[in-house]
Deep mutational scan, measured.
Amino acid sequence: MTEYKLVVVGAGGVGKSALTIQLIQNHFVDEYDPTIEDSYRKQVVIDGETCLLDILDTAGQEEYSAMRDQYMRTGEGFLCVFAINNTKSFEDIHHYREQIKRVKDSEDVPMVLVGNKCDLPSRTVDTKQAQDLARSYGIPFIETSAKTRQGVDDAFYTLVREIRKHKEKMSKDGKKKKKKSKTKCVIM
């Protein structure tokens, strides 16, 4: 069974824990209790493949930012979460993405942009803004509501699919490099 290491990042209060708990335990946590770091595991079937999701729910508070490099190193894919009623959390996505790329030393890291709290009427981040940002990053965008469960499975499952595509691409690139290195030079 394939294991996928997913990391949920975003500013404090955007609903990272609520999304994760909704996926794992099928219930909505409405009281806000700032996370330092929590880890969850769940076995699911995605596109006919049974897999184990190892999900790291991270601290959004700035005082825990020193811990970010460590979990970013171990993560295979990242859910970059903002709240649709919090423009600052949307603007912060850029910083999370840049930090992930720096730590992973790669421009090509599996990510999904997630606009959470889409059940709320007080939207300050337009869907088109988020779609445009995701398009500019070359990553999928999904709106979710941890409260109603809308888009929750889709967000995590899409990230797994992005990781699969990335692994497939990397193995193809690896095979191309191996083929090239088999060419021999004969000096007579």
Rank of each mutant, 00 (worst) to 15 (best):
F141P: 04
F82E: 00
M188C: 13
I24P: 13
R149D: 09
P110A: 03
Y96S: 01
H95S: 04
D92S: 02
E143D: 14
K42D: 07
K178M: 14
R135E: 12
C80A: 03
K128P: 09
K175C: 13
I142G: 04
Y157W: 11
E143V: 06
M72N: 04
R123W: 10
V160F: 05
L120P: 03
K16C: 05
P110C: 02
A11V: 11
S65A: 08
L133Y: 09
T35W: 11
G138A: 05
D33G: 10
F78G: 00
V112D: 00
E143C: 06
I139Q: 08
L79H: 02
A146C: 09
F141H: 03
K117F: 15
F78A: 01
A130D: 02
K177V: 13
S145Y: 05
E91V: 07
K184Q: 07
R123N: 13
Y71R: 08
K177E: 15
I142H: 03
D105T: 04
T127W: 13
L159M: 03
Y96R: 01
I139A: 07
D54W: 01
Y64E: 15
V114H: 00
D132V: 06
K175I: 03
S65P: 13
M188F: 03
L6E: 00
N86A: 03
V114I: 14
D132S: 09
M72R: 04
R135V: 06
D92V: 13
E37V: 12
D173P: 09
V81K: 00
I46D: 05
T35G: 11
L53C: 06
A11C: 07
D38H: 10
V14K: 02
V81Q: 02
G60I: 01
Q150H: 15
D153I: 15
I24T: 13
S145L: 04
V160C: 02
R164T: 03
R161P: 00
T144R: 10
E107M: 08
R164M: 09
E98H: 02
H27E: 12
E63I: 01
A134V: 02
Q99N: 02
I142T: 11
G10L: 00
T2N: 12
I100M: 04
T124F: 10
E62V: 09
Y137C: 12
D38Q: 01
S145D: 14
R41M: 09
E3C: 10
S136N: 13
I55Y: 08
L6Y: 02
I24V: 10
G13D: 10
D173T: 08
V109K: 01
R97N: 04
T124G: 12
D54A: 04
S122H: 11
D57P: 05
S145P: 00
G13I: 11
I100D: 00
I100H: 00
T158D: 13
G13K: 07
V14A: 08
K101I: 05
Q129W: 13
V9H: 01
D92A: 14
T124P: 11
V152E: 03
L53T: 10
K16A: 11
E107A: 12
D30S: 08
K42P: 08
L23M: 11
K176Q: 14
G151W: 11
